[in-house]
Design a protein around this nucleic acid. Structure first.
Lengths: 217, 217
DNA sequence: GTCTATACTTGGATAGAC
DNA sequence: GTCTATCCAAGTATAGAC
């Protein structure tokens, strides 16, 4: 029905030029946040990186800020998928931290956390933007909390550490390590800390690899 | 000598109008970094806050970036003094963390760490700026390291935790907590963590308040 | 030496072409 | 519906007034 002769509807079928443009702009925005920083991520800079007219940003996203938010949402979704899989696959605390360290290394190399940091810092320039960024960061705290709950569930630390606060600290540490790594172009210090955390997790959790702690749900 | 009739030398005596202007601009730059963020800290915005012609920024500092660096240096110096005094006065690890928590509360309220965060994040927009910001942040790592060394000196943890890495983590956590606090306008979570850290420090260090650990130098 | 008025450049946004 | 040429505002920087 309604599918007579007019190929004008913007459904996911067809060539979908608009979708391609949107994707190109989002990718260019991510790149720009990474290499130019929030302050340098202008319509012109992003347009140049995408090889597209800057005006398209306003047509497709309404404003530069909204495109940057879309970029943040995209990065957040991509990484959340990656981390979720990792958390699900890990069976011991030590293993969890080791796997997380590997992904964090990716984050540093690919500049994903840089995007978060730039958006959080850039959010200071407008209260409205701040709220929207906060909404996009919130899932990460919830995620960190779930991961920590899984770790301390069968450990005596459960009562000692309030998971909400611990999650807050982990997210903060993540952001801070990224900032410092980026600042002096050296990820070694951050990665060393992850190794150390892995060791501690093994010690405080349980070093026994035969622990049948799977399938608690 | 040479002090004939010409009051033209810019020494610290006299009315020192240039010095006053410089100070006003630095203060306005700090305010702007705090409330407008790095992206919003333009020559115009700073000039307006100071009630001065934006052109003065270029006369006195050469560029906006250089003024912002001067602002960062100023904040860094002010806070370093405050923290140094606190570290010197504390005698036990628990006390140290408690005192640090109090000053950190000041930092959050007065927006001092915001200035650091904005400058670190903003440094992404230019490699040259990045190096200069890094140079201004470096003393904080050294400071954190000294403080940690003092804490773990007479504790069995000394061998376990490499102080360099620990200092790195503390600075990162500091920056990250500030970012999150600022993002959702809630310092409670960050302050709770400091309380928690104070307790831990007391437990792992020594709870005995009679420890005569002063004057080791 | 200090400061202001102004030139020039870049950025955000849109009217109108396709 | 999609995109480009173009407008106006805001940013940096300086020539010249005081």
């Amino acid at each position: 029905m309604a599918k007579s002769g007019r190929p004008s509807r913007p459904g996911p079928a067809k060539a979908d030029t608009a979708g391609a443009t949107r994707r190109a702009l989002v990718d260019a925005a991510i790149e720009s946040l990474r290499f130019d920083g929030f302050a340098g991520a202008s319509a012109r800079a992003i347009g140049t990186r995408a090889g597209l007219n800057p005006g398209l940003i306003f047509y497709h996203f309404g404003s530069v800020a909204d495109l940057l938010l879309a970029a943040l949402a995209e990065v957040s979704a991509r990484r959340m998928e990656r981390y979720s899989a990792a958390v699900d696959s890990a069976t011991t605390p030590g293993e969890l931290v080791t796997v997380a360290a590997g992904i964090f290394r990716e984050d540093l190399d690919e500049g994903y956390v840089t995007v978060l940091v730039e958006m959080i810092a850039g959010a200071s320039s407008s209260p409205a933007l701040g709220e929207q960024v906060a909404a996009l960061i919130a899932p990460w705290r919830a995620f960190a909390q779930r991961a920590i709950e899984a770790i301390v569930a069968d450990s005596p630390l459960a009562a000692l550490v309030p998971v909400g606060d611990a999650a807050h600290a982990v997210v903060a540490l993540y952001l801070g390590l990224e900032m410092l790594s980026h600042l002096d172009g050296d990820r070694a210090a951050a990665l060393r800390l992850f190794d150390r955390a892995g060791q501690l997790a093994s010690v405080f959790g349980m070093t026994v690899p035969s622990a049948p702690a799977k399938e608690t749900t």
